[in-house]
Design a binder for these strands. Structure first.
Lengths: 200, 200
DNA sequence: GAATTCGCGTAACGTACGTTACGTAACGGC
DNA sequence: GCCGTTACGTAACGTACGTTACGCGAATTC
């Protein structure tokens, strides 16, 4: 056998270059040659590790999702208070530092491409439902009493759209949505979601 | 002089075809030939009314913004209650019917392209600031007392990111964010925003 | 150390795009 | 009725892309 190369690592490196290109040039500038240039290699190497462009994007996408999930999973649960725990988890979805900003840019760019691809839409739906379930458990734990199911669901939706809206705006216009503003809005949103019971 | 053609109308028709193509195929499928096919004409006609693709997209974008603003401006202020008025205006930003869904798809698609184009980003910032100002006035009118400036701003931000997040999710996965869910979340968010004063 | 298999660069190919040029038909002015 | 201008359709051109094929160097095995 010839010399040994870590395929998984090479593929991850190239996927990292995909993120870089998307961040700098958007999806419209995402070409195999641009990816190769960002990765410091040739297009031959890219095609050596990925059958075609679609496979490359799928890998870059899955690495992105894996990274996000891992960051949340690896988060130590050192918060005795349920609200602090909820905040800590929710905060992971915000582009508060450079790493998460890059992820948010890639996330938002890929998100819109799922609209016209049924297969990707299904993946997104599953992932989104999982994210909702996770937040639902945390919100329930942070609520004082036992909420009604519909009420709880609406609260979680309000939280999710807040997170997505913050991320989207921070990606589009970072200067208008600096990290401290994002934190303030999220903190306030948790206050709003967790306080009071719905009038029936 | 030769036969007369309404340039403005033709340009609007072609811009409408741009929306249609974006809605069906996304930005990646947005080619001059696809636009011409959707408009039922030839690429020669498209290039006759628009210097180049960039000008076409700019026009389609401006028509979209104009439409959104017009729909809100043309809305009769028949709500004596400030909260109902705020709700009615905010609701215009949600993809609750087919027309607004199409607009939201185009809006979200164009939104991400502003990231890598400084000129478009400036346009977006101005438009976004104007939208914030409009909502701020309505929120202030709907609040019981006189809020602190920073507190008011945070409330408005929470509303804006809620609207954007709802629109983004409804565009991405319409089945998971049907109109009644959008309305419920918005209604709830207004409750949350308008009730109570911030603890200092 | 020869054979073999993998790693990867180079380069060509076909296609689809934006753009441009050219031709023609239709209409209005004189 | 002729002329000039406008309104378009047709088609070609250059470019950039994804993809594929080919070739060589290197490393491992026997």
């Amino acid at each position: 056998m010839p010399r040994h190369v870590d395929h998984a690592q090479r593929r991850s490196e190239i996927s990292g270059a995909v993120w870089q290109v998307v961040s700098e040039s958007g999806l419209e500038g995402l070409t195999l040659r641009a990816v190769a240039a960002a990765a410091g290699c040739t297009t031959g190497m890219v095609t050596h590790y990925f059958r075609d462009k679609k496979a490359l994007l799928a890998h870059a996408r899955s690495v992105m999702h894996r990274r996000m999930a891992d960051r949340i999973d690896a988060m130590p649960v050192r918060h005795a208070e349920p609200r602090a725990h909820l905040y800590a988890v929710a905060e992971q979805a915000l582009p508060l530092d450079e790493e998460r900003h890059l992820e948010a840019v890639v996330w938002s760019s890929f998100l819109l491409t799922t609209r016209t691809d049924p297969e990707l839409l299904r993946e997104h739906s599953v992932s989104h439902a999982s994210w909702l379930r996770r937040l639902t458990a945390l919100v329930r734990a942070a609520l004082p009493g036992e909420p009604e199911p519909g009420d709880l669901e609406d609260r979680v939706r309000a939280l999710v759209v807040c997170l997505d809206g913050l991320a989207l705006n921070a990606v589009t216009d970072p200067d208008a949505y600096p990290p401290d503003l994002q934190r303030r809005v999220l903190d306030r949103q948790l206050d709003l979601i967790l306080e009071g019971n719905r009038s029936l």
